[in-house]
Design a protein around this nucleic acid. Structure first.
Lengths: 246, 246
DNA sequence: CACACCGAAACATCCGAGGTCTCTGTAGGG
DNA sequence: CCCTACAGAGACCTCGGATGTTTCGGTGTG
């Protein structure tokens, strides 16, 4: 095994064993390199890799630190990973989201604070009558993120956040082909909000299920007969959508 | 932004745009470095980072390649991330697993092939009467992995695989050996298998829920009163608890 | 046709030399 | 006494080159 990989494991072990706690500062490059028995160059490769997955945080002119290692930070690295998936696997991601989102919504109905619920309602009102696509998607993301956060489980929240990434594109596409998508989305969002506000977990769960299933069904019917444009490198969205949903 | 991070994004874009397809070989280090406008050292840091999350695969003496980018490969990198979490967040991970596992089990009851179901049953029989801890862990892992795989959703499968981190699981399993919970676990495994074999998704889902909830409950009761030994760097497990497993 | 050898290609590792940024202690002014 | 500006030290950033290791593929022999 390359020395760099060994270094990665060593640093990992130092953190897991507790020798390096969250927030701690690592020895300086030269020192740590000597201690691990490799060159600074190789050590830097290891540090950079751990940096990408948010385990370490290097600050030029200061030092290298262990991050807080909180679930949201680490799982947030998964967003980077998820970005690599093409449209053919979006359905699989959406299917997982379909499992998690209703559960999160039900939990939110139980655990969400009154203040947060008020803010959730405010989000719905913020949306203009004729919003732009960007505004809609942003609002939609915020809405679902707030609910996920309201579940009280940071892991669940971050996971949903990551999963939303690749499906966001699909959500935008939905606007093109579905006329009433905007209105329906707003109705469903409102229903979800009201169920949460009424502290009705099962009702909230059902609305969330309906909500996600709608996107899933639409996406499935859109992708299946359109196997033609599967390839074609570097193709971007050819046209602009009118609305979005999720 | 450091040039290395720029390089990471550039390579990422080259892959997402389709310029580099899965399995493709990258230009040699010196060439790619010049093309991206940085030194070989810095480029190597970028490559190493992308290597850790399984996007690239470097083979000494041969070249650097783009991996298959399959969901299982990429999400597999999450296992590495999950390893960093201490016991205080294990409950949150388990809660997510409690949501996903029943759903996967229900899906497996619907989609699993007859052959795979037979293999699942064989797994149960393989276990000796007085298995070692290692055998138990291995068998348990295989059992749940096979079910997750049977859901037909590779994303769901990989996610579940990552969530049930080998580390946490081993610890839990070690605890169960001290009591009769081994028997209960085997009974539940058998019940899950029979529900799948009978093509009863709802029954399978319920058994899976019961199964995971058992661990969760045990883990919660074990962790809560033991808030005392929270700190103390590099301390190992002083003693082992006794209860259920998954 | 099969096997062993050999050279080219590519990555692995190391070293040392500047460059740049951040923190911090210090001195001056208000 | 407090605040601000400045200079130094410490740490990371980037680069270029040299040398070792591994793998692949062509070549020659039995």
């Amino acid at each position: 095994m390359p020395v760099t990989d060994v270094a990665i494991d060593k640093i990992k072990d130092m953190i897991i064993s507790g020798e390096l706690a969250p927030g701690d500062r690592l020895p300086k490059e030269a020192e740590l390199a000597q201690r691990l028995g490799l060159s600074r160059s190789s050590l830097r490769e290891a540090v950079k890799a751990l940096c990408l997955i948010r385990v370490l945080d290097v600050r030029q002119g200061d030092g290298t630190y262990v991050t807080s290692l909180e679930p949201n930070l680490l799982l947030d690295a998964m967003t980077f990973v998820v970005d690599f998936h093409r449209d053919d696997t979006v359905l699989d991601f959406l299917a997982v989201r379909r499992i998690l989102e209703p559960a999160a919504t039900a939990l939110a109905a139980l655990h969400m604070g009154d203040e947060d619920i008020a803010e959730l309602g405010a989000l719905l009102d913020e949306l203009a009558d004729a919003p732009t696509v960007e505004a809609l998607v942003a609002n939609d993301l915020q809405f679902h993120r707030k609910i996920a956060d309201g579940s009280g489980n940071p892991v669940l929240c971050s996971l949903l956040d990551s999963l939303s990434g690749p499906t966001a594109r699909a959500r935008i596409w939905r606007g093109l082909t579905q006329e009433g998508a905007v209105a329906r989305t707003r109705e469903q969002h409102t229903a979800i909000y009201e169920a949460i506000a009424a502290r009705e977990p099962e009702l909230a769960r059902s609305w969330a299920t309906v909500h996600i299933a709608g996107v899933e069904q639409w996406l499935r019917s859109t992708l299946t007969p359109a196997e033609n444009t599967a390839e074609g490198p570097a193709e971007a969205e050819p046209e602009e959508p009118a609305a979005a949903a999720s």
